[in-house]
């Protein structure tokens, strides 16, 4: 029997399985790349679109939603009324965050969009979600988001949701 041949074949197959193990982990950054390409789950500042002209011929209603994972610790609120914006227009809205507890807290907001197709058209110039939030006991802060909904947004997309979920950090659930 050809033992060197066996050894060579098995070595190759072992390498293949090691490569696939690495690939399993590589799916994590690959998934992020995919999300960036499609605009899902963006959490970094985006350059403004080249054409910043405002399309005043139509407007989109942007619903602002706030979710909080640890309701005991925080109060996190979105502006109650939706905002009407023209594509290309620079918009500023403010969320509210309050530390309800007696100790300093650190947390972070994670953005999410609906419908999924809207995500690619949200250009955030500045957002509180880029940074961790440090709050002293019972401190209350206003958190601004500055964004443009670019002109590429589909004409039939008339309602878009911008949602943030606030998580406490430094605590294992």
């Amino acid at each position: 029997m050809n033992t060197t041949g066996n050894r060579r074949t098995s070595l190759r197959l072992t390498l293949l399985s090691a490569a696939m193990f690495a690939f399993g982990f590589a799916l994590v950054p690959l998934y992020d790349v995919f999300c960036d390409l499609t605009g899902l789950n963006r959490d970094a500042a985006q350059a403004l679109a080249n054409n910043t002209q405002v399309d005043a011929s139509r407007s989109v209603r942007i619903e602002l939603v706030a979710n909080v994972q640890d309701g005991a610790l925080w109060r996190f609120a979105a502006p109650r009324l939706p905002v009407e914006v023209h594509p290309g227009e620079l918009v500023r809205v403010e969320y509210e965050l309050e530390n309800l507890s007696d100790r300093p807290l650190v947390g972070r907001a994670v953005p999410s969009y609906a419908p999924l197709a809207a995500a690619a058209h949200f250009k955030k110039i500045d957002c509180f979600c880029f940074r961790e939030q440090h709050l002293a006991p019972h401190e209350k802060v206003r958190l601004p988001v500055l964004f443009v909904l670019d002109r590429g947004v589909a004409r039939d997309m008339k309602v878009v949701t911008l949602s943030y979920t606030f998580f406490a950090l430094g605590k294992r659930t």
């Binding site: 939603v65 039939d156 997309m157 008339k158 949701t161």
Partner: peptide, 24 residues
């Protein structure tokens, strides 16, 4: 997939084990 132009939006949040409805 066409969620454009709704007449009404309701936020639904799942909890273990109940639902919350929020008429935005």
């Amino acid at each position: 997939k066409d969620t454009a132009n709704p007449d009404l939006t309701i936020k639904v949040t799942g909890y273990q084990w109940k639902w919350e409805y929020d008429y935005l």
